[in-house]
Write a protein that binds this DNA or RNA. Structure first.
Lengths: 340, 340
DNA sequence: CGATTTTTGAGGTGCGCACATCAATTGTTG
DNA sequence: CAACAATTGATGTGCGCACCTCAAAAATCG
């Protein structure tokens, strides 16, 4: 039988009350008692029964995901994953919800964060670009005891907050390696498309991409980033113009999470198959693109994994535990038609 | 406040005893009562508090991983992951252990399985090739109420058992796609190395590999599989001979989990850098190979993920629940130098 | 109809721990 | 040494549920 707190008390030659004081960091315990208890824990291999703890505390966790209002398929996927997790975690006394806010307005984001009630939420996961205002608001949030996770964005990592997501520099580098090797020695230009280059994510990906192309594939030339601003017509027009002017484009790299908008625009003008097309994030569009070979590779971060990871981290922090690092690292996945 | 079983009973107009009978599938309940309770569960959104269930049942789980005795770095990694999980899961009343057995002897495996005491273990995860004998032994194990997982091998999926691992056909196809596109249009031969071609895993990977090469990269020619039998000297000799005879080898594909043995042999004879080298499984060797560019890509399945997945499945089965499909699918990962 | 079976209700116990109260013991200080 | 503070012990309650027993009520049957 596995030792209980009572066994611990007996083995330590102390009362259950003192053991309780040590285990739960209550005041009025001598250093000697603390040491004795901890030694005995090691000695007899005592482990708190988490079910009993949870039951006795009868505490529940309320976490909120703050996601952008605008976004296409990947955002939808993300929301879907949170809903999934919501259903699963409900049993474990974890209440989740999603609120969408205009993340591109730092002022509004900061205002929203400042209005979060610490009696209503134990943790917030925010997907928004960073800015000084937002950073300050996050700091105040944390001071009020609300656990915070930077979710898939804002990689200027705050020392006080946890981050869930990939290394975007490495993600861009990975895309570049695929492009470079898939193109196959041919010289030519690489067309790079982003929704916007304002965000740190885009900048880092582009930086990682250029870095690898320039050092390992000097026969390829990266064109300046095209920004779509999420506008389909605009995207179609600009891409058409650029492809007309640059007949030697051999590859397209879409570094935003929204591949649909630029690629549908480009496909209207030219056949994508001869080009090496690499995009980010698995969506119904990118999946079908892989299947019918309009897209050669997808660089992805599993949204379900990201959501679960954010939840695990907030829960661990709420329990004043360290998160388990290993399981919570988000991998940069490379998806081909063959390993979908 | 979230509804308890008592609330459920009141809302359903039944006693707690009857509600308990329904919730735990006890005998002597009318169909009417069952229906009424289930309806009320939906209506008030009752969810059993898993902590209370766990505490009241006070049940623990004992699972054993049966792994091969022989194996190199990947096996070591796997054992390490089980040990990690062991420490983490200990808190959740899950006892894990690892036993290594000679998996290539179906007779011994079957004998071992038949001797597993159902009072001592709730679940077994076995990493071993299939054979009729083993299959029968697994069947008897399951009949005795022990939950069983086919762990990273034996993909002739038993309808009665769960499987954790990748689709090896797809894994081979993925490797082929990488080889084909990385080679870059050059014609030549692909050297394929396995520890043994006896195992179903190897056969499926090879089949998937050939399939993609033949259909998409006809300018490449697959050589017959070389078997190392885990013997370094043998491997070095054979590979040297083959590479001497085939000066037009452009790529090496190692389809077993042990890349070290063949690649160290080949590297002794020739420089691997000009070749496109693709191997399976992330190990210290394959990682450093990626870093210094002796290896171009690694096709991997995360061992930590696989271990956790196997545990989750055994636990779900032991609780007579269905496992959560999504989280437990093992991805075929593509690792490059850039996304390690 | 009574005799039997099936179904229900009422109630208790314990799982391992958190949290609270109050008394008893020890240590400290002037 | 008394007066006080710091520490410890003894004990109780409740978290939500599983599991058990015994009696009562309802349904079924010959």
């Amino acid at each position: 039988m596995r030792p209980t707190a009572k066994d611990l008390a007996e083995a330590a030659g102390l009362s259950l009350a003192t053991v309780d004081r040590v285990l739960n960091d209550r005041p009025n315990v001598s250093q000697k008692a603390v040491r004795k208890v901890n030694e005995t824990i090691e000695k007899i291999g005592f482990i708190r029964n988490p079910a009993a703890v949870s039951l006795a505390r009868n505490k529940s966790y309320r976490f909120r995901f703050l996601l952008p209002t605008t976004g296409d398929l990947y955002l939808a996927e993300l929301i879907h994953r949170v809903e999934d997790a919501r259903a699963v975690m409900k049993g474990d006394l974890i209440d989740l919800d999603v609120v969408q806010i205009p993340v591109d307005d730092p002022h509004k984001v900061a205002k929203y964060l400042s209005e979060v009630d610490e009696n209503e939420f134990d943790g917030i996961a925010l997907m928004a670009p960073e800015s000084p205002q937002v950073r300050d608001a996050i700091g105040r949030l944390i001071e009020r005891g609300i656990k915070f996770v930077q979710f898939l964005s804002g990689q200027e990592k705050l020392p006080t907050a946890d981050f869930v997501g990939v290394d975007n520099f490495a993600a861009g580098a990975t895309a570049a390696k695929i492009v470079g090797r898939f193109v196959g020695g041919k010289a030519g230009k690489v067309l790079i498309v982003a929704e916007t280059m304002q965000s740190l994510d885009s900048i880092q990906r582009r930086f990682g991409f250029d870095n690898v192309i320039n050092s390992q594939f000097p026969h390829l030339q990266c064109l300046p980033s095209v920004e779509t601003y999420g506008d389909e017509r605009r995207a179609a027009q600009i891409l058409r113009r650029i492809l007309e002017r640059n007949q030697d484009v051999v590859s397209i790299y879409v570094l935003s999470s929204e591949a649909r908008i630029p690629l549908e625009g480009a496909a209207a003008y030219t056949d994508l198959r001869p080009l090496t097309v690499v995009v980010h994030e698995r969506t119904p569009f990118s999946e079908s693109g892989l299947r019918d070979e309009h897209i050669d590779a997808v660089i992805a971060q599993d949204p379900g994994h990201a959501v679960r990871s954010a939840i695990r981290i907030m829960r661990a922090r709420a329990d004043a535990r360290e998160p388990h690092a290993g399981q919570d690292k988000i991998r940069i996945e490379v998806l081909l038609k063959e390993n979908l």
